[in-house]
Nucleic acid binder design. Structure first.
Lengths: 347, 347
DNA sequence: TTGAAAGCGGTACCAA
DNA sequence: TTGGTACCGCTTTCAA
């Protein structure tokens, strides 16, 4: 051994159908038939092939398979969300994965970070890998790359936010109805001065929730007071500051409706600091872990992330099964979870 | 139009390199060169090809490409975690995605649910799709399918839990050191009666944290009291009940070390019900959202999920770049975040 | 029922 | 620099 450069044995090329065929003493095509469980192979031959497959530990190459297949299906789909680490998005991801798994389909999961350029790159990369379809949380407002891919024949479903055309399937939360629910609930508990905190108005869901708030007030016959409205808030700190300021004014609100997770937490913090947690009502849009452990527990309008994911995946697979037209637009209802903070009476 | 069955135009077969070549009046190979940015094509020809590509809206088929390529790379990797919707797992997922994205690589994300059968199915499905490598949170204890795939040449990194052999790269949290940290911290604040709540002892991380607890006690010269130890706890309710029972005993603990997220929350709930939140200390393993909003805020041993994901992805890509041997075993440190609950003095 | 040959969309190799 | 030809691993088509 001292004189040889032996090293590792040459990488043992992974066996192909050809190898299996040779070992079993049959043709390539017969192996293909066995692997794909096509009818019309003698039990004896099938057994011989199966034996060779086991012996060689043959692994089917589905990429080569789908390249040649007429339908060119890869049994993989693409998912583009804002951030796979976001709890809401990852719940959608998981729901989609479960439906996909039932069809032996794998999911490319990716994050756009709300960046249109990155979204476009991802969509192109996914299409280049021949995914069977795409589920996307679209980054507003320019959807040209997405819609172009759709026009070229890539099955697609938008989730959480709609497409700008009606031609593409979409599955969205009924944000407006949810916001109305919140306002109605607070009004029923005697509130007339209900403040609204909202995310960037350029975000479709934020705008919808604002509109629902306005509609809710109208329904309850409450005059809209612009001084109680703070939009374009980003993050816990901004919400906390805004809530603190509102509560310090002469016409302070008796209740808050926070249009997003972090804003809700910001309001909680403000109420805590001011010692008003049990004196000012609060309903938040979107549930969050531990909402039930706070004091008082926080009432929320819960979104059905799993429902969104399931509906989106269902639609995509319906498209793949031939039901492409007309495009459908599914709205998933919200649910009010009363935990205490939304049931406090006015001061 | 009335007499025709016109319908939609026949699906316009998506253009191939062949089409581009024909339009540009060059050979297939020249188009390939342009697409792959290989040197040695006249500027003029390159421009003509580029024009044809634009005109036809040609899309490169990377699956066909990698089939023929010598390295057979697909620029996609597989990730198998317990649940992509779990915050810890999804943070790992995201960190991996970011490193992958920098290499124009896509990630198949999938959930094993701690089910060995499902894990095996996923791994085989991923291998069949010719992923370049795999990052796995392995389901103990039978790793035969995984290791077989590894032996066959599939680059692989285990994350969060080690492989049963030393031949496979792994990236894990330093659970033991983290637990020692917690016990030491509590001891430094005067505690001698420190209860331990742990998850199923069959879970590697749970066992490690338990061992760290034991080591921590030994280091501090505290006698281990089996009556203060509750293992094999699952979920909030079990932990809440166990904590309640412990606190009602004659030799109640003055501090808790909870070995997992949900267990920590269970203890918080128990303390809240008993009105002992400010009288009994608590440190939890693994951080959770809103831990800082509870009263008192919960001190934790925080895991570095992003660090885990980054290290795992780095290792995988190092393997892909040729640095496969020897296998490395990376331990990612934890960090104690003191927020209040872990700094309470003994009753 | 079985197999030979063609070809999916591209890349590798070598000759022109 | 450019192009022809073989071929990646598999399915399709069609003849035996």
């Amino acid at each position: 051994m001292l004189t040889t450069m032996a090293g590792k044995p040459p990488a043992p090329r992974t066996p192909t159908m050809r190898d299996v065929a040779a070992l079993a003493g049959v043709s390539l095509k017969t192996v293909s038939r066995v692997v794909n469980q096509e009818a019309g192979v003698t039990a004896e031959l099938a057994e011989r092939v199966a034996g060779a497959i086991r012996l060689l530990d043959y692994r089917h190459d589905t990429t080569a398979s789908s390249l040649r297949r007429t339908d060119r299906r890869t049994a993989s789909i693409g998912l583009v969300v804002e951030d796979v680490a976001n709890p809401f998005m990852s719940a959608i991801n998981r729901a989609i994965e479960d439906l996909a798994h039932a069809r032996r389909t794998l999911v490319f999961a990716s994050s756009s970070d709300g960046d249109a350029q990155r979204e476009a790159d991802l969509v192109r990369a996914l299409a280049a890998r021949q995914v069977d379809g795409l589920i996307v949380v679209p980054v507003a407002p320019d959807q040209r790359v997405l819609l172009n891919e759709h026009r070229l024949g890539l099955p697609m479903v938008f989730v959480d936010r709609p497409a700008i055309t009606r031609d593409v399937d979409s599955v969205t939360t009924d944000n407006r109805e949810g916001a109305r629910l919140a306002v109605g609930h607070l009004a029923r508990h005697g509130h007339r001065r209900i403040a609204f905190l909202g995310d960037l108005h350029s975000i479709w869901t934020a705008e919808e929730r604002y509109l629902g708030y306005v509609e809710g007030l109208a329904t309850e016959g409450i005059r809209l007071d612009p001084r109680l409205i703070r939009r374009d808030m980003r993050g816990i700190d901004a919400a906390c500051a805004a809530a603190t300021e509102l509560l310090g004014s002469s016409e302070a609100p008796s209740a808050f409706f926070a249009g997003q997770n972090l804003l809700t937490i910001g309001v909680v913090r403000a109420l805590q600091v001011l010692g008003l947690r049990h004196r000012v009502a609060l309903i938040g849009f979107d549930d969050f872990t531990l909402a039930d452990l706070l004091e008082p527990a926080v009432s929320v309008i819960a979104q059905d992330a799993v429902g969104l994911g399931q509906a989106a995946a269902s639609r995509l697979f319906e498209q793949l099964d031939g039901d492409a037209f007309p495009a459908r637009h599914i709205r998933v209802p919200t649910r009010l979870i009363a935990r205490g903070s939304g049931e406090l009476p006015p001061g």
